[in-house]
Design a protein around this nucleic acid. Sequence first.
DNA 1: CGAAAAACTTGACGATTAGTCATTTAAATT
DNA 2: AATTTAAATGACTAATCGTCAAGTTTTTCG
Lengths: 234, 234
Amino acid sequence: MATSERKARELRQREEMLLDTALEMLEKDGFATMTMDKLARRSEYSKGTIYNHFASKEDLLTALCLRGFDIQLQLYRSTRDFEGTSREKMLALYYGYYLYARQHPTLFMCVLSGQSPNVIEKTSPERIAMRRQKEREVAAICDRVVAEALVNGDIPADRERIVGELTFANWAIAFGTTALLLAAEQAYSIARLDQTSSLLTNAGLVMDGIGWHPLSDSWDYRQSWSRIQSFFGA
Amino acid sequence: MATSERKARELRQREEMLLDTALEMLEKDGFATMTMDKLARRSEYSKGTIYNHFASKEDLLTALCLRGFDIQLQLYRSTRDFEGTSREKMLALYYGYYLYARQHPTLFMCVLSGQSPNVIEKTSPERIAMRRQKEREVAAICDRVVAEALVNGDIPADRERIVGELTFANWAIAFGTTALLLAAEQAYSIARLDQTSSLLTNAGLVMDGIGWHPLSDSWDYRQSWSRIQSFFGA
DNA sequence: CGAAAAACTTGACGATTAGTCATTTAAATT
DNA sequence: AATTTAAATGACTAATCGTCAAGTTTTTCG
């Protein structure tokens, strides 16, 4: 059945194209003003066809969330080649997260609002499952860095520390800082330079709090930060 | 002109009533399903009258944000009478924030989504100003606790530390932790006990990272946490 | 190849929704 | 009591999501 395979591939390609278009509209005008009718018009397919791909507007939103996770994952995975201490590797993840949020603020917000019950209810079970899968993949990458640090002894094992707990703490400060800065930037207007600086500061506080060596008073993390920046820049 | 005063008072009362009703509907069904028509029907006023109070649905959303800030502020202010170290006082603010998010998850989310450009654009300038004002009040309460700690010497002054920076770090971890837990609770189902425990942990990490004395290895913050809990419970 | 069957596409349509505004109703003033 | 002022109303418009019967294309198979 070569034909059916080709069909499936074409469907997948069109779905990507639809998501490209939706993303474009989204990046330009936000989610509220992106309508299914406009998407139909711009993609040159009918609304019915679009509803063959997405069960609802919320299902489309979740499909975009998946893209968000993919971007995040790609950035995270690219840090594999980054050389440095375990703490620097974690810092690279922070920076990747920041880049993702900066370059795709709308997707970043989608991932957040896509968690609300109202969206989940109207999303197809398949996509919900995919979302969970990707979330797990993201968490796994952070877990790996934390686990390495625990094995190395970079994080002291004297207090009973669970990997998931430490990952969560880093995730929470990264998310909290990024989300607040992003929101503030949109609402008021905060300089971009202050943003990465705040993130570095907050990341440092949590990792110092964990006791993740080398601590910030015995290492120049501003320099690490620059190194990470040029790593991603290259 | 006693009559016009009475008029103004009646208007204000009705507005509160409308917000009560909207909040009820919101807590039950979420923002998307709360419609102005339904609000009109349930409040037994016409749509036109409702639009005399709120310039748009987004304006109503912002009015609800203001309520959220009021609840948060009330909880924060109530910690004035809480006796303890400066770090315990900050911890009490964390707990107040948690209570606010727990008891009014929808308002909590409103405050977040109410920052989006799309909402702000459609909100009346007066309410935007009120929102900013309340944000400042919340920040001021945190700032006061941080400033006290700096004066006390509970936070070491050796590194140059700015009050706003430290407030922001605490805010970011409190917000990040709470928002992620809340979202996870709604999407999957996470026990409530783990939630306050995570918040205590994360708060501890940041404050240890700041070097906020007494550090967590020389103080039992679980006990402080219980004390705060019963303080709010009373 | 050609006809029947299966799969897919389409856009008009129904049901809702945000927001407006001419009309009606109530209140205040003189 | 008449006039003026202010406020409430809900029918109406435009826009939106999602559906589905009718039409079109593609595949299958004798």
